[in-house]
Design a protein around this nucleic acid. Structure first.
Length: 502
RNA sequence: GCCCCGUUGGUGCAGCGGCCUAGCACGUCGGCCUUUCAAGCCGGAGAUCACGGGUUCGAAUCCCGUACGGGGUACCA
């Protein structure tokens, strides 16, 4: 591996709602780059929009990062050499920068009011012109501005965009980008409430914090020239810009609520493992260059390369995510997997957990014992609930009719149950291996096929047609409970037949 | 409208001028295995590499145009 300069990257969400998978994927790439290069992964909260501020959002963001295991080197809670990491606490910095730009003539105070701007836009549209600010505030005198201030009118700071020329920037995933400045109007950098706009704030902070790579969604490409212009005017360097492609839904549109679960924590609650989500998301817009798909986070981090980020949008596939989750569940460490399953089993019944009659905490040794046969049968963690709930309740209520499997008659059911009760009574030791060889031996003495023998047992034991492998289940259920269920099943079946026939 | 980005089977990717009669994976279909369900294994179907022009001995790969998709055009990020 070539030696690399440690990258300082920041994930800079604005706290306006839940954290969606698009943002999560950006955070992922930040983290991968930082970890691969031995740099720092920083969280910066961009709360410069007071109107859209959502007090729960910051918690949600941190919780999401934490769940995915994206550990921070610097951020609001843990601090760091460039604290504070919340923009609303750094307002002077932006005000200073704005002032500097005004002093140098790169920016100016503008007292054009919102209504005036709206009217302008309306007129432009009515005339079939492109809507946009017409730079009318450029030549206000200090006296005029002061007068507006005295009257309590809104005053903003706008950046003065050159009327001609163009700006060229290098994007790490798309290459050289060129923008015609004659198409760009003067834009606001400091709002009338004293807060900066994104354009000013992120440029100032990225410089102050020594950010080397700005990784963000491609929706930012059109405003790239603004950022470069500010940097030039401030006399600060341009960091490397990395615009990652959007993630879209199956219909090609932006992922939204109607496309199902989309926030990180919803995936957690639905039983996806952090590693699977991490792996799947990483591949949505990046690939290692060969056909490798299932990878650990360490493998991804070491193979991650900015140059291999795709430039076209990716469609989110819930199906492939499920498959990915399954792959990670199959590969996970047994003990870790058992621990991961516990919360889904123990959560309230109405949230999908085990029946209320089962006491919490549940016996984790039961879960642990079943993990080897469960892991390849579930796509998401909560799938285990209905697979092993029969092991936690005192009794089950089987449907006698289901005991009659394919190519079976009633007598076979009775034979199967009777013979297995006899055999299991004396099996010693009561282990999966012994149970299996004993029960299989019954096929010779009873003349039943394996399926004919095991179907009644399965249904009597679990009250299900679909269940985990029998022998393991019997061992875990234990001799007493197994026999009790088989006996009850047999009694139920005989009664059922009696009723039906007579 | 204008500006920007993109376009390989239903989906995600590989491909970086000849090794491509386009490879892998998800999904789908069929088979094997099998106590149910899975997992696993084997095999099949599925792509005029968006379209049209160039450049070249040779293009999915380079250039131009068109179409289509997405993004942007705020005192939102």
């Amino acid at each position: 591996m070539t030696t690399q300069i440690p990258a300082r990257v920041r994930f800079a969400p604005s706290p306006t709602g839940v954290m969606h998978i698009g943002g999560l994927r950006t955070a992922l790439y930040d983290w991968f780059l930082a970890r691969k290069t031995g740099g720092q992964f920083i969280l910066r909260i961009e709360d410069t929009d007071q109107n859209r501020y959502d007090p729960d959002a910051e918690w949600h963001i941190k919780e999401s990062l934490n769940w995915l295991g994206l550990d921070l080197d610097e951020g609001p809670d843990i601090g760091g050499p460039y604290a504070p990491y919340t923009q609303s606490e750094r307002l002077e910095l932006y005000a200073d920068a704005a002032e500097k730009l005004i002093d140098s003539g790169a920016a100016y105070y503008d007292d054009t009011q919102a209504e005036e701007l709206a009217a302008l836009r309306q007129r432009q549209q009515a005339a079939g012109q492109a809507p946009g600010y017409d730079n009318r505030g450029r030549y206000r005198t200090p006296e005029q501005i002061q007068e507006s201030r005295d009257k309590g009118l809104d005053v903003v700071v706008r950046f003065k965009v050159p009327d001609h020329g163009d700006v060229s920037v290098e994007d790490e995933v798309r290459g050289g980008l060129r923008f015609d400045l004659s198409l760009l109007q003067d834009f606001v950098i400091l709002k009338s409430d004293g807060f900066p706009t994104y354009h000013l704030a992120h440029v100032v902070d990225d410089y102050e914090m020594g950010i080397t790579h700005v990784i963000r969604g491609e929706e930012w490409i059109p405003s790239l020239p603004r950022h470069v212009l500010i940097q030039e005017a401030l006399g600060i360097p341009t960091p490397k810009y990395v615009h990652v492609p959007l993630i879209t839904a199956q219909d090609g549109a932006k992922l939204s609520k109607r496309h199902g679960a989309q926030s990180a924590l919803e995936y957690r609650d639905a039983g996806y493992t952090p590693d699977a989500v991490l792996n799947y998301l990483a591949l949505l817009g990046w690939s290692p260059g060969d056909d490798t798909e299932v990878m650990t986070r360490g493998e991804i981090a070491s193979r991650f390369e900015i140059g291999r980020i795709l430039s076209h949008p990716a469609k989110f596939s819930a199906q492939k995510l499920e498959w990915m989750n399954q792959q990670h569940i199959i590969k996970a460490d047994e003990d870790v997997l058992a621990e991961m399953m516990l919360p889904y089993l123990e959560r309230p019944e109405e949230e999908g957990g085990l029946s209320e009659e089962v006491d919490r905490p549940i016996d984790r040794s039961v879960v642990k014992a079943m993990v080897p046969v469960l892991r390849e049968r579930i796509k998401v963690l909560p799938d285990v609930v209905e697979l092993i709930d029969f092991l936690f309740v005192d009794e089950v209520d089987p449907n006698p009719e289901e005991m009659i499997g394919r190519r079976m008659d009633e007598e076979m059911v009775v034979t199967a149950l009777n013979s297995s009760i006899g055999a299991l009574t004396s099996v010693e030791p009561f282990t999966t291996e012994e149970i299996e060889s004993t029960l299989r031996g019954l096929t010779a003495t009873t003349g039943l096929k394996a399926g004919q023998l095991f179907t009644p047992i399965r249904v009597a034991m679990t009250a299900k047609r679909i269940a985990p492998p029998l022998f393991e289940s019997i061992e875990v259920l234990g001799r007493e409970r197994t026999l009790a269920r088989l006996q009850k099943g047999l009694a139920m079946f005989e009664k059922h037949v009696e009723n039906r026939n007579g």
